[in-house]
Design a binder for these strands. Structure first.
Lengths: 255, 255
DNA sequence: CGACACTTTGAAGACGATCAACGCCGGTGG
DNA sequence: CCACCGGCGTTGATCGTCTTCAAAGTGTCG
């Protein structure tokens, strides 16, 4: 167990460029802790105490509006960090809820401790800057998509990103969490998601049950890119294509 | 002219906490430059050379999709910085266009130089982190609003923020740029914006021509907050209320 | 004055949300 | 073992909102 966690923490983007000894020291500052399905890590308004890394399981980050709407801002799986965006904010309270949606294992780091560490390790600050910067551009892009893309296009985009980010096989992989959650993540209703999924079958992407397969990437890109401002330098499509290639060569090697 | 620019740069959030001497040194690294209405600072895909600060005028940041849609991500006025989000990204090219929409005066800083400076001035890195972090949370909130709010509610939210950010008088101020631009910034059509504006008259906010006045903040907040997840700890409403108060006391003092 | 950009209004259409009903499964309890 | 239930996903019908298209009003500037 400790092994798994340590391995995951070692490979955090936040820790890139640090020596193994430094990583060791940092990991010493963290604490492992299990959460059962349904346990809250924290709620909106709670004081910020920790920075978290998901080692196993899944955590949903979400907010609620007074009129009862629930909006999930993110779903974190193994290897994802929670709180990067908050630790350096002025506000001392959480701005969203975090709940374990599977039995999960997390690594917790005290924020006070982490802040100090950042002040002394310039490389950490730079890593964090790069991460926030990247996250920003992704957020901007998603906001744009929400304005310019149809539900089906947004969904295709989302599945592509999921496939690459979590290193799934484009020819066929299982959704890591429920469609209800995906709908909420994308800011649409379950019914809309369901209908969007069937539309995508005409555009080279099939989803049956939990199984997703990219059948015709060219066709899908044509469908999605017409509404995407960064179609030109969008590295997702390229990555996807590469991945398909890699898998094909692996197959050939096996044969 | 140099005075104006220097004064604005001195008060950049990025430079908070630096001594005046340090600021002087940093300002030496920058260069002032005028842009005429319609001049591009850079285009999507151009290599990233500079970090900019608007000293006078206005700059529109926007993207275009292959199918002809234009989406403005931001409009920068005096005191705003351009490029904070990009300087620490891996990508070496701009991911959006920037065009002067009035005759403007900008301060330009070489990115290479700025990166070095950040590496050596820990305080700059921390300031930048705070800014990105804050920008992130604003972006997340806006994305959420796009999913949960009507056009009129989003607009009200936007005008509130504008009023506070640029230190306008809530009882009456002029829009700093065109409604077309606002519509584009909010990801809606001109017609939708126009209709949203009339709707807002029933909710305590009147706009006639370029003139905006908050007539009944209570009513407006009630209208907006029902769909806002951070209604509780949203400091915008509070700030607006304070500002109204301040202006009232000023008025009394004058009388 | 006329050209032009910006704004507003009306009418029609598209898209997603909402409401309602049903099928499917996994779990619980009799 | 089966009946029942609840969560999840799908499908159809309807409704509201935003977009689209068309037209006309407003303002500014040469």
């Amino acid at each position: 167990m400790q092994m798994i966690a340590s391995h995951i923490v070692r490979n955090l983007p936040l820790f890139i460029g640090l020596s193994e000894q430094e990583k060791d020291r940092l990991i010493q500052g963290g604490q492992q802790r299990p959460y059962a399905n349904g346990d809250y890590l924290f709620r909106h308004g709670d004081p910020i105490h920790n920075f978290y890394v998901v080692c196993e399981g899944a955590v949903q980050l979400f907010r609620e509006t007074p009129d009862g709407h629930e909006m999930t801002t993110d779903v974190c799986l193994a290897g994802d960090a929670i709180g990067e965006t908050e630790i350096l904010q002025l506000s001392s309270t959480h701005r969203f809820n975090a709940i374990a949606i599977k039995d999960s294992l997390l690594m917790e780091f005290s924020v006070a401790w982490l802040k100090d560490t950042i002040k002394n390790h310039n490389i950490l600050a730079l890593n964090l800057l790069g991460m926030l910067s990247h996250r920003n551009s992704v957020a901007a892009l998603e906001a744009e998509h929400k304005a310019t893309m149809s539900a089906a296009q947004q969904l295709a985009c989302f599945l592509e990103r999921m496939c690459i980010l979590h290193d799934f096989d484009p020819r066929g992989f299982d959704l890591p969490y429920s469609k209800t959650l995906i709908a909420s993540r994308l800011g649409m209703e379950n019914e809309t998601l369901s209908r969007a999924l069937s539309k995508l079958r005409d555009h080279g992407l099939s989803v049956q049950g939990n199984r997703v397969s990219f059948n015709d990437i060219e066709k899908m890109e044509a469908y999605v890119c017409s509404s995407c401002s960064i179609a030109g330098d969008c590295n997702e499509h390229e990555a996807l294509r590469q991945r398909l290639l890699v898998n094909k060569t692996k197959e050939i090697r096996r044969a």
